[in-house]
Design a protein around this nucleic acid. Structure first.
Lengths: 142, 142
DNA sequence: GTACGTGCAAAGAATTTGCAGATAA
DNA sequence: TTATCTGCAAATTCTTTGCACGTAC
């Protein structure tokens, strides 16, 4: 879908900054932080301020155009994929991976009497790439 | 289980402060923040410092004697229940509720090639008590 | 021209770090 | 004694706020 259309569908006026940030999220499925987005876009939009990145990410999240991830204790991350899907955080390299929805717990609007709006689930451990590196290291040194 | 025993089982030396903090977590299933624990224990241990609370919570978490919750974007919360169980955060009152393990997604040590150490899943919405209050309010005003 | 959007600088909040004194095996 | 633990103060990091200027319709 077109970026501008997507913003409009969520009742967000498409400014240059908002388009750039939404576009970045749609292009990069790396679950970036506000700072990463700012650093990436700063060269092409020199006047961009971090405040605007924070404002825009909050706006996108509130209007359902992006998802806020609170996996990492340090930073809040953002994801253009707003469908309920799991995440895996590697404790070694810090990368966040998407997990297929197959792993999702059963969804329901009500749970033990509470009205559920958002579903988040994630796992932490060592990712397959770090496991592979470790395996190579062990092989090499034995 | 006894607090001291629990600490020792996780290879943590039981100091006065550590016992008090572990005890607090075991007694209060309110998923407190470092600050809440500090405020609660400060009167009985006047020399207690926030640094020690932070240090201890980190230690408990690293040694598997407590679980770190990153549901709330603002503060890190802690839970003495280290078994995989879900949480529900009420967006209105801010309370965190435990969910029965029945709602848990299927567990496995490996997932899409990644080695899973921790499983976290949580939901956000309006809790049953806030729903009830809202219902009473509507009834009263119509 | 009026409402909205942007960005600087400052404030705020949560957590960490450096270090010196206290404590315990 | 010797390593570990504690706690104050300062630093750090992430995020929000206040406010004035710009921009768009």
């Amino acid at each position: 879908m077109d970026v501008v259309t997507r913003l409009q569908l969520h009742n967000i006026k498409p400014s240059v900054q908002r388009i750039a940030i939404m576009q970045y999220l749609m292009d990069h499925h790396t679950h970036p932080t506000a700072d990463e987005i700012y650093t990436a876009l700063s060269p092409s939009i020199p006047t961009l301020s971090k405040t605007t990145v924070y404002n825009t990410l909050k706006l996108l999240s509130e209007h359902g155009a992006a998802q806020t991830l609170t996996i990492d204790e340090r930073n809040t991350c953002y994801d253009a994929n707003t469908a309920a899907h799991g995440h895996f955080l590697c404790k070694r390299c810090g990368k966040i991976y998407d997990l297929s929805t197959a792993e999702a717990p059963v969804q329901s609007q009500f749970m033990e009497g509470h009205n559920v709006h958002e579903i988040h689930y994630y796992y932490k451990g060592i990712c397959k790439h770090c496991l592979e590196e470790e395996r190579l290291y062990i092989t090499k040194n034995n």
